[in-house]
Design a protein around this nucleic acid. Structure first.
Lengths: 214, 214
DNA sequence: TTGACAAAAAATGTATACATTTTAAATTAG
DNA sequence: CTAATTTAAAATGTATACATTTTTTGTCAA
């Protein structure tokens, strides 16, 4: 596999697991030495992660691991609410049985693997949503949604502590699927809004608690 | 100035002016020689333009200048409609007089320079919109809007032919500003929707005509 | 002629080396 | 001692050179 791709994944994961905690300032040299690749590779990855929001510029030299804020989480939730129901509505018309099946399989897989790492669970959950939106056939919309998910997933290391929510989430996913199967787009949309709002509120509250605790 | 930045701007402009027409396949070597820089610089710019949607992958080697489609334009319009009114609404509450003034200045400048290149006019028009949204204080929302504008601006070479629209557009901008000055957020929002829809429809019709003419 | 396989060419990925810019440290004048 | 200026160190930008992958070309057998 390309070293670029490897480093991209590894560095992202290390950021998520807070091996490089928020606020850490990194240089190309540092990363190159630490991960045993040339600076060229680091540069490519750095640019990608900067535009993904997993790193942010730090003055004119160096890059910084961004922190977490309840405000940002709130905004991401708002944007999801603005775009995901639209995607679902557009997709509902074209959705195939095979796609519904895929989504079902994914839910089963998640249910069967209770002890996944939180970021893996998050990834699978997004895949579920992604399948539902897929057939909206709007590449740009899907691109924006992927970006938003990327941002949100940066927070998932935190969200772990809210494991109690996993069950609620799974139940809602199942209900969502059921509604779509029966062609009840209207109700599915409403449920999706509730679903996103709940997840968002939980995350925001968690972050606020943590911010207050300093 | 950094060569990277220079090349980024120049290549983008050349794509917009169809110096590299849609469908053209380019290689790093080619670009490096043509613009007199090393491949490293080309690589950086290539990655940036790929993620901006000004270039697209072409198999496993080479990059391609994307074409234009009415469908894509339609989608971009849809997304603008989904996000810009929200931004305006959120911004309206916090908008300062100095910002309204900035916007006013911009309109005056545009009105005073009738003979701007179409892409410059497009850039200024977007700056106007951007100022109105600025104070929504939602970094991610603004980032998404900037991206959307990037995409739309790729089409502006075409939109030139619709210069007749420039006057309508300017009039609507002025009215929008006036409504905001008087705090009529409701009406401003409705006008914005109309404004975006009109521009979108015009562009889509133009593209459909051109597609039909082949 | 066609299709598969091998060899050559070309393109991209990666590393090293050098140039320029930025940051930090050291020195000196006030 | 402070602050400004100079000097050294470090970081990023860029170019060249090499390695690997991908594409194309050409050859040969069916």
């Amino acid at each position: 596999m390309l070293k670029k791709q490897q480093l991209y994944n590894q560095l992202k994961q290390h950021i998520q697991l807070q091996h490089w905690p928020p606020g850490t300032v990194l240089t190309q040299q540092q990363l190159a030495e630490h991960y045993g690749v040339s600076r060229i590779v680091v540069r490519d990855v750095q640019q990608a992660l900067l535009s993904d929001g997993w790193l942010e510029p730090h003055g004119k030299a160096g890059i910084q691991v961004p922190g977490f804020s309840a405000t940002e989480a709130q905004e991401l939730c708002l944007l999801r609410l603005q775009l995901e129901p639209l995607a679902l509505q557009l997709a509902a018309a074209n959705m195939s049985f095979s796609q519904l099946g895929q989504a079902e399989d994914l839910l089963a897989y998640i249910a069967a693997h209770k002890h996944l790492a939180p970021y893996q669970r998050g990834e699978l959950n997004w895949q579920f949503h992604r399948i539902l939106y897929q057939s909206c056939a709007k590449p740009h919309l899907l691109r924006l949604l992927d970006q938003l998910h990327q941002q949100v997933s940066r927070y998932l290391g935190y969200q772990e502590q809210a494991l109690a929510y996993a069950d609620t989430s799974a139940a809602e996913h199942a209900e969502l699927l059921s509604l779509l199967r029966h062609g009840d787009t209207e109700q599915a949309g409403k449920l999706l809004v509730r679903h996103i709002t709940e997840a968002g509120n939980l995350l925001v509250q968690l972050l606020q608690k943590q911010q207050g605790a300093r």
